[in-house]
Design a protein around this nucleic acid. Sequence first.
DNA 1: GAAAATGTTATCAT
DNA 2: TATGATAACATTTT
Length: 245
Amino acid sequence: MPEGPSIVILKEEATRFLGRTIERVQGNTTIEKERLLLQKVESVRSWGKHFLLELPDFSLRVHFMLFGSYRINESKSWAVPRLSLGFDSGDELNLYACSVRFIEEPLDLVYDWWADVMSEHWDPALARERLLTVPDMLVCDALLDQDLFAGVGNIIKNEVLFRIRVHPLSTVGALPARQLHELVAQARQYSFDFLEWKKQFVLKKHWLAHTKRTCPRCDIPFSKAHLGRTHRRSFYCENCQVRYG
DNA sequence: GAAAATGTTATCAT
DNA sequence: TATGATAACATTTT
Protein backbone atom coordinates (compact mmCIF):
# COMPACT_ATOMS: atom_id res chain seq x y z
CA MET A 1 0.00 0.00 0.00
CA PRO A 2 2.34 2.57 1.25
CA GLU A 3 4.82 4.27 -1.12
CA GLY A 4 4.19 7.87 -2.11
CA PRO A 5 2.47 7.20 -5.46
CA SER A 6 -0.07 4.90 -3.81
CA ILE A 7 -0.93 7.66 -1.38
CA VAL A 8 -1.43 10.03 -4.31
CA ILE A 9 -3.95 7.57 -5.78
CA LEU A 10 -5.80 7.55 -2.46
CA LYS A 11 -5.70 11.33 -2.38
CA GLU A 12 -7.24 11.51 -5.84
CA GLU A 13 -9.96 9.03 -4.93
CA ALA A 14 -10.66 10.83 -1.67
CA THR A 15 -11.22 14.22 -3.28
CA ARG A 16 -14.84 13.05 -3.53
CA PHE A 17 -15.06 13.92 0.17
CA LEU A 18 -13.79 17.47 -0.27
CA GLY A 19 -16.15 20.04 1.21
CA ARG A 20 -18.29 17.35 2.80
CA THR A 21 -19.02 16.81 6.48
CA ILE A 22 -18.05 13.80 8.56
CA GLU A 23 -21.36 12.48 9.88
CA ARG A 24 -20.36 9.10 11.30
CA VAL A 25 -17.19 7.87 12.97
CA GLN A 26 -16.26 4.32 13.92
CA GLY A 27 -13.17 2.23 14.42
CA ASN A 28 -10.79 0.74 16.94
CA THR A 29 -8.36 3.63 17.00
CA THR A 30 -7.45 4.97 20.42
CA ILE A 31 -7.47 8.61 19.35
CA GLU A 32 -10.47 10.77 20.27
CA LYS A 33 -12.23 10.02 17.03
CA GLU A 34 -15.41 11.82 18.12
CA ARG A 35 -13.54 15.04 17.52
CA LEU A 36 -14.00 14.32 13.82
CA LEU A 37 -17.79 14.42 14.00
CA LEU A 38 -19.39 17.28 12.06
CA GLN A 39 -16.01 18.46 10.82
CA LYS A 40 -15.92 19.59 7.23
CA VAL A 41 -13.12 18.38 4.96
CA GLU A 42 -11.35 21.55 3.87
CA SER A 43 -8.63 19.87 1.88
CA VAL A 44 -7.35 16.43 0.96
CA ARG A 45 -3.57 16.37 0.80
CA SER A 46 -0.58 14.09 1.00
CA TRP A 47 3.06 14.41 1.93
CA GLY A 48 5.29 11.48 1.13
CA LYS A 49 3.57 8.47 2.64
CA HIS A 50 1.24 10.60 4.76
CA PHE A 51 -2.41 10.97 3.80
CA LEU A 52 -3.90 14.15 5.22
CA LEU A 53 -7.41 15.45 5.74
CA GLU A 54 -7.43 19.10 6.64
CA LEU A 55 -10.35 20.09 8.85
CA PRO A 56 -11.33 23.50 10.23
CA ASP A 57 -9.54 23.21 13.57
CA PHE A 58 -7.00 20.44 13.07
CA SER A 59 -5.93 17.78 10.59
CA LEU A 60 -6.05 14.00 10.44
CA ARG A 61 -2.84 12.22 9.48
CA VAL A 62 -2.98 8.64 8.24
CA HIS A 63 0.13 6.51 7.74
CA PHE A 64 -0.36 3.03 6.32
CA MET A 65 2.96 1.61 7.51
CA LEU A 66 3.61 -1.79 5.90
CA PHE A 67 0.21 -3.42 6.12
CA GLY A 68 -2.33 -0.65 5.97
CA SER A 69 -5.14 -0.51 3.44
CA TYR A 70 -8.29 1.41 2.66
CA ARG A 71 -11.66 1.01 1.00
CA ILE A 72 -13.98 3.68 -0.33
CA ASN A 73 -17.70 2.90 -0.21
CA GLU A 74 -17.02 -0.71 0.61
CA SER A 75 -15.59 -2.54 3.58
CA LYS A 76 -13.60 -5.63 4.45
CA SER A 77 -16.10 -7.97 6.05
CA TRP A 78 -13.29 -9.79 7.83
CA ALA A 79 -11.59 -6.78 9.37
CA VAL A 80 -12.40 -4.03 11.84
CA PRO A 81 -11.44 -0.61 10.51
CA ARG A 82 -8.91 1.40 12.45
CA LEU A 83 -11.07 4.36 11.49
CA SER A 84 -14.20 4.70 9.41
CA LEU A 85 -15.47 8.11 8.29
CA GLY A 86 -19.07 8.34 7.13
CA PHE A 87 -20.44 11.10 4.89
CA ASP A 88 -23.83 11.87 3.44
CA SER A 89 -25.41 9.56 0.86
CA GLY A 90 -23.84 6.64 2.73
CA ASP A 91 -20.39 7.38 1.37
CA GLU A 92 -17.55 6.22 3.55
CA LEU A 93 -13.81 6.01 3.85
CA ASN A 94 -12.58 2.92 5.69
CA LEU A 95 -9.00 2.81 6.90
CA TYR A 96 -7.39 -0.43 8.09
CA ALA A 97 -4.25 -1.34 10.02
CA CYS A 98 -2.85 2.14 9.81
CA SER A 99 -1.51 4.73 12.17
CA VAL A 100 -3.85 7.68 12.66
CA ARG A 101 -3.04 10.92 14.45
CA PHE A 102 -4.27 14.43 14.79
CA ILE A 103 -2.08 17.32 13.79
CA GLU A 104 -2.97 20.50 15.61
CA GLU A 105 -0.71 22.95 13.78
CA PRO A 106 -1.37 24.20 10.25
CA LEU A 107 0.00 21.65 7.77
CA ASP A 108 2.14 24.25 6.03
CA LEU A 109 4.04 24.72 9.27
CA VAL A 110 4.52 20.99 9.79
CA TYR A 111 5.55 19.76 6.36
CA ASP A 112 8.35 20.68 4.00
CA TRP A 113 6.49 20.23 0.73
CA TRP A 114 9.63 20.55 -1.38
CA ALA A 115 10.88 17.26 0.08
CA ASP A 116 7.92 15.27 -1.30
CA VAL A 117 8.91 13.65 -4.59
CA MET A 118 5.25 13.63 -5.68
CA SER A 119 4.63 17.28 -4.88
CA GLU A 120 4.39 20.15 -7.31
CA HIS A 121 6.69 21.89 -4.84
CA TRP A 122 9.38 19.19 -5.10
CA ASP A 123 12.72 20.98 -5.39
CA PRO A 124 15.45 18.92 -7.05
CA ALA A 125 18.12 21.60 -6.63
CA LEU A 126 17.44 21.73 -2.92
CA ALA A 127 17.53 17.94 -2.73
CA ARG A 128 20.97 17.94 -4.36
CA GLU A 129 22.14 20.63 -1.96
CA ARG A 130 20.94 18.66 1.00
CA LEU A 131 22.61 15.51 -0.28
CA LEU A 132 25.93 17.34 -0.38
CA THR A 133 25.65 17.88 3.36
CA VAL A 134 25.62 14.12 4.06
CA PRO A 135 28.55 12.81 1.97
CA ASP A 136 29.08 9.69 4.08
CA MET A 137 25.51 8.46 3.75
CA LEU A 138 24.94 5.38 1.61
CA VAL A 139 22.74 6.01 -1.41
CA CYS A 140 20.42 3.17 -0.36
CA ASP A 141 19.84 5.03 2.91
CA ALA A 142 19.55 8.43 1.27
CA LEU A 143 16.70 7.31 -0.98
CA LEU A 144 14.77 5.93 1.99
CA ASP A 145 15.36 9.04 4.08
CA GLN A 146 11.95 10.71 4.29
CA ASP A 147 13.50 14.08 5.05
CA LEU A 148 15.33 13.93 1.72
CA PHE A 149 12.98 11.92 -0.52
CA ALA A 150 9.57 11.85 1.16
CA GLY A 151 7.45 9.16 -0.46
CA VAL A 152 10.25 6.95 -1.73
CA GLY A 153 10.04 3.39 -0.41
CA ASN A 154 11.95 0.20 -0.90
CA ILE A 155 10.57 -0.64 -4.35
CA ILE A 156 11.36 2.80 -5.72
CA LYS A 157 14.78 2.67 -4.08
CA ASN A 158 15.72 -0.56 -5.82
CA GLU A 159 14.33 0.47 -9.19
CA VAL A 160 15.93 3.92 -9.17
CA LEU A 161 19.39 2.56 -8.35
CA PHE A 162 19.08 -0.06 -11.07
CA ARG A 163 17.86 2.51 -13.55
CA ILE A 164 20.76 4.90 -12.93
CA ARG A 165 23.29 2.05 -12.64
CA VAL A 166 24.46 3.00 -9.17
CA HIS A 167 25.40 0.40 -6.55
CA PRO A 168 23.36 0.70 -3.33
CA LEU A 169 26.51 0.81 -1.18
CA SER A 170 27.83 3.86 -3.00
CA THR A 171 28.39 6.86 -0.84
CA VAL A 172 26.51 10.06 -1.61
CA GLY A 173 29.64 12.21 -1.55
CA ALA A 174 31.48 9.94 -3.99
CA LEU A 175 28.84 10.19 -6.70
CA PRO A 176 29.94 12.10 -9.79
CA ALA A 177 27.79 15.18 -10.40
CA ARG A 178 25.97 13.46 -13.23
CA GLN A 179 24.97 10.49 -11.10
CA LEU A 180 23.92 12.73 -8.22
CA HIS A 181 21.73 14.63 -10.64
CA GLU A 182 20.25 11.39 -11.99
CA LEU A 183 19.60 10.08 -8.49
CA VAL A 184 17.45 13.09 -7.70
CA ALA A 185 15.80 13.22 -11.12
CA GLN A 186 14.88 9.53 -11.19
CA ALA A 187 13.65 9.47 -7.60
CA ARG A 188 10.87 11.66 -8.94
CA GLN A 189 10.57 10.24 -12.45
CA TYR A 190 10.33 6.63 -11.33
CA SER A 191 7.76 7.63 -8.71
CA PHE A 192 5.55 9.04 -11.45
CA ASP A 193 6.11 5.96 -13.60
CA PHE A 194 5.11 3.92 -10.55
CA LEU A 195 1.95 6.04 -10.25
CA GLU A 196 0.88 5.42 -13.83
CA TRP A 197 1.68 1.72 -13.74
CA LYS A 198 -0.12 1.28 -10.45
CA LYS A 199 -3.20 2.98 -11.84
CA GLN A 200 -3.15 0.57 -14.77
CA PHE A 201 -2.58 -2.41 -12.42
CA VAL A 202 0.66 -3.23 -14.22
CA LEU A 203 3.18 -2.06 -11.66
CA LYS A 204 4.74 -5.42 -10.85
CA LYS A 205 5.37 -6.41 -14.40
CA HIS A 206 7.47 -3.29 -14.86
CA TRP A 207 9.82 -4.14 -12.00
CA LEU A 208 13.31 -4.67 -13.37
CA ALA A 209 15.16 -5.22 -10.10
CA HIS A 210 12.86 -5.43 -7.11
CA THR A 211 12.36 -9.12 -6.14
CA LYS A 212 14.15 -10.18 -9.34
CA ARG A 213 16.74 -12.91 -9.46
CA THR A 214 18.49 -12.04 -12.70
CA CYS A 215 19.77 -8.80 -14.15
CA PRO A 216 17.80 -8.01 -17.31
CA ARG A 217 20.77 -6.13 -18.72
CA CYS A 218 23.59 -8.60 -18.01
CA ASP A 219 21.62 -11.77 -17.54
CA ILE A 220 23.74 -12.63 -14.49
CA PRO A 221 22.27 -13.29 -11.04
CA PHE A 222 21.27 -10.25 -8.99
CA SER A 223 22.75 -9.79 -5.57
CA LYS A 224 20.22 -9.70 -2.76
CA ALA A 225 21.20 -8.29 0.60
CA HIS A 226 19.78 -6.36 3.52
CA LEU A 227 21.77 -3.15 3.35
CA GLY A 228 22.09 0.20 5.05
CA ARG A 229 21.03 1.44 8.43
CA THR A 230 17.55 0.01 8.07
CA HIS A 231 18.65 -3.35 6.61
CA ARG A 232 16.09 -3.25 3.87
CA ARG A 233 16.16 -5.61 0.92
CA SER A 234 18.33 -4.54 -1.93
CA PHE A 235 18.34 -6.20 -5.32
CA TYR A 236 21.22 -5.11 -7.50
CA CYS A 237 23.69 -6.11 -10.16
CA GLU A 238 27.35 -6.16 -9.16
CA ASN A 239 28.26 -5.93 -12.82
CA CYS A 240 26.29 -3.00 -14.16
CA GLN A 241 25.66 -0.94 -11.03
CA VAL A 242 28.81 1.00 -10.27
CA ARG A 243 29.96 1.36 -6.71
CA TYR A 244 31.30 4.83 -5.94
CA GLY A 245 33.21 5.48 -2.74
C1' DG B 1 2.44 -23.01 7.66
C1' DA B 2 6.53 -20.38 8.51
C1' DA B 3 8.76 -16.49 6.85
C1' DA B 4 9.10 -12.29 4.89
C1' DA B 5 7.63 -7.96 3.38
C1' DT B 6 5.82 -1.40 -0.34
C1' DG B 7 7.30 1.14 7.22
C1' DT B 8 8.02 3.76 11.42
C1' DT B 9 8.78 4.60 16.22
C1' DA B 10 9.94 3.60 20.99
C1' DT B 11 12.94 1.48 24.13
C1' DC B 12 16.92 -0.78 25.68
C1' DA B 13 21.96 -1.97 25.50
C1' DT B 14 26.54 -0.77 24.50
C1' DT C 1 25.66 11.04 23.91
C1' DA C 2 25.36 8.52 19.91
C1' DT C 3 24.70 4.32 17.56
C1' DG C 4 22.66 0.15 16.94
C1' DA C 5 19.86 -3.83 18.02
C1' DT C 6 15.30 -5.22 19.25
C1' DA C 7 10.43 -4.98 19.84
C1' DA C 8 6.03 -3.52 18.64
C1' DC C 9 2.30 -2.83 15.51
C1' DA C 10 -0.51 -6.16 12.23
C1' DT C 11 -1.76 -8.22 7.06
C1' DT C 12 -0.90 -10.53 2.94
C1' DT C 13 1.85 -13.25 -0.08
C1' DT C 14 5.29 -16.69 -1.06
